[in-house]
Amino acid sequence: MSSSRIDALTQWAAQHHGLDRATLRLSAAGGDASFRRYFRLTLPDGNTQIIMDAPPAQEDSAPFVTIGQRWHAAGLPVPAIHASDLEAGFLLLDDLGDTPLQATFTDPARTKENHLAALSLIAELQNRANPAALPAYDAALLARELDLFPEWCLERWLSLSAPGSWETLRTGLIERALEQPVVSVHRDFDAMNLMWHDQTLYMIDFQDAVAGPLSYDVISLLRGRYCRFSADQFAALVSTFYQQARQEGRLTRSVSEAAFLAQCHAMAAQRSLKVLGIFCRLTLRDSKQGYLARLPHFLTHLEDSLMALPEHDEFADWVREVLRPAILQRLEASTP
Rank of each mutant, 00 (worst) to 15 (best):
residue 1 M to E: 12
residue 1 M to S: 14
residue 1 M to Y: 09
residue 10 T to S: 13
residue 10 T to Y: 02
residue 11 Q to M: 11
residue 13 A to F: 04
residue 14 A to T: 07
residue 15 Q to A: 15
residue 16 H to M: 08
residue 18 G to Q: 01
residue 20 D to P: 00
residue 23 T to H: 12
residue 24 L to I: 08
residue 24 L to T: 09
residue 26 L to I: 15
residue 27 S to T: 15
residue 36 R to G: 00
residue 40 R to M: 11
residue 40 R to Q: 14
residue 43 L to A: 00
residue 45 D to C: 01
residue 46 G to C: 04
residue 47 N to P: 00
residue 51 I to H: 02
residue 53 D to K: 07
residue 58 Q to G: 03
residue 59 E to L: 12
residue 60 D to F: 11
residue 62 A to M: 07
residue 63 P to C: 11
residue 68 G to E: 09
residue 73 A to W: 08
residue 76 L to Y: 11
residue 77 P to Q: 02
residue 82 H to Y: 10
residue 85 D to M: 08
residue 85 D to R: 05
residue 86 L to F: 07
residue 91 L to H: 03
residue 95 D to V: 03
residue 96 L to P: 01
residue 101 L to F: 09
residue 103 A to C: 09
residue 106 T to Y: 03
residue 114 N to Y: 14
residue 117 A to C: 12
residue 117 A to Q: 14
residue 117 A to I: 13
residue 118 A to Q: 04
residue 119 L to Q: 10
residue 125 L to Q: 01
residue 128 R to S: 13
residue 130 N to E: 14
residue 132 A to I: 10
residue 137 Y to T: 09
residue 138 D to R: 03
residue 139 A to M: 02
residue 143 A to K: 10
residue 143 A to Q: 14
residue 143 A to G: 11
residue 145 E to H: 07
residue 153 C to Q: 09
residue 154 L to Q: 01
residue 156 R to G: 08
residue 157 W to D: 03
residue 159 S to T: 11
residue 160 L to H: 00
residue 162 A to K: 10
residue 162 A to L: 05
residue 166 W to F: 10
residue 167 E to W: 09
residue 175 E to I: 07
residue 177 A to G: 07
residue 179 E to P: 01
residue 180 Q to V: 07
residue 185 V to C: 14
residue 194 L to K: 12
residue 195 M to C: 09
residue 199 Q to C: 12
residue 202 Y to V: 06
residue 204 I to S: 08
residue 206 F to C: 00
residue 212 G to M: 08
residue 213 P to E: 02
residue 214 L to S: 02
residue 215 S to P: 04
residue 216 Y to F: 14
residue 220 S to I: 13
residue 221 L to R: 06
residue 224 G to H: 03
residue 229 F to T: 10
residue 230 S to K: 07
residue 234 F to T: 13
residue 237 L to Y: 11
residue 240 T to P: 06
residue 241 F to P: 04
residue 242 Y to T: 07
residue 252 T to V: 14
residue 256 S to A: 11
residue 259 A to L: 05
residue 259 A to W: 01
residue 259 A to I: 00
residue 260 F to E: 06
residue 263 Q to F: 00
residue 272 S to I: 09
residue 276 L to N: 02
residue 277 G to E: 04
residue 277 G to C: 03
residue 277 G to L: 04
residue 279 F to P: 01
residue 281 R to D: 06
residue 284 L to Y: 08
residue 287 S to N: 15
residue 292 L to W: 05
residue 295 L to V: 12
residue 296 P to S: 10
residue 297 H to N: 11
residue 299 L to G: 13
residue 299 L to Q: 08
residue 300 T to P: 01
residue 300 T to M: 09
residue 304 D to G: 00
residue 309 L to N: 03
residue 309 L to G: 06
residue 314 E to K: 11
residue 316 A to Q: 15
residue 317 D to A: 13
residue 319 V to G: 04
residue 321 E to P: 02
residue 323 L to E: 05
residue 327 I to G: 02
residue 327 I to A: 01
residue 333 A to I: 02
residue 335 T to K: 13
residue 335 T to F: 13
